[in-house]
């Protein structure tokens, strides 16, 4: 099996164990083969159930420290070789225990600090509310490992806030005048795609 176990369960990488269990229970209820007695979908459901079970086992065993699961993602095996246990720090941050998380991080000598270290340091600062420091740490993590989506997302979010973006701002749209040129083009392309799906065509040349 080569699917990302977190995706199979539909939880994020930093979800807590409780959340993972809840997600597993929900999926198991949905796909349990007993519900599909005499249903042509029974085989599909059984297959799905197997996948969910494997993913759950993998995530749990990975979290308990024995990374037996062969993860294809950037997270996981790649970072187990660094000077600190990144899974443990992530878990501490997730549970809100940022003081201990920071102690672990500060214990890492300066020459062994990699992108993951800066990302986690940034997360600790963010949780505490030390936002300037968080931002520079996220920036450092992204510049050290530009391919990592997780670091990039954290950085992008703060960078847009730094430009003055605020979540749920009812005043923002009316003041910026709505849509930019790019938005307009993408919307038209999408509208064209929708029409084509339905057998029509909005923009005849594409």
């Amino acid at each position: 099996m080569n699917k990302d176990p977190y995706k199979v369960l539909g939880v994020s990488r930093n979800a807590s164990e409780e959340e993972i269990k809840a997600a597993y229970r929900k999926l198991a209820k949905k796909y349990h083969p007993d519900q599909y007695e005499g249903n042509p979908l029974k085989d599909v459901a059984a297959e799905k159930m197997e996948e969910i079970n494997a993913a759950y086992d993998a995530v749990i065993s990975q979290r308990r420290g024995n990374a037996s699961y062969n993860s294809t993602s950037s997270y996981g095996s790649q970072y187990y070789n660094t000077a600190f246990d990144s899974a443990q720090v992530r878990d501490l941050i997730q549970r809100g225990n940022i003081t201990v998380a920071e102690q672990v991080l500060n214990g890492v000598p300066a020459n062994l600090r990699d992108a993951e270290w800066y990302f986690l340091k940034g997360s600790v600062c963010y949780k505490r509310g030390w936002l300037s420091e968080a931002f520079s740490n996220f920036a450092r993590a992204t510049s050290m490992d530009p391919s990592n989506q997780e670091y990039a997302a954290a950085y992008r979010n703060m960078a847009s806030q730094r430009q003055g973006n605020m979540a749920g701002n009812p005043y923002q749209q009316s003041r910026t005048g709505g849509m930019s040129g790019c938005d307009c083009c993408t919307s038209l392309c999408l509208a064209d795609c929708c029409c084509e799906c339905m057998g029509g065509d909005l923009i005849p040349c594409c």
Partner: peptide
Amino acid sequence: DSIMLTLGALSE
């Protein structure tokens, strides 16, 4: 910069 970061997190 610091204020905008603060307000962004605040709005969240």
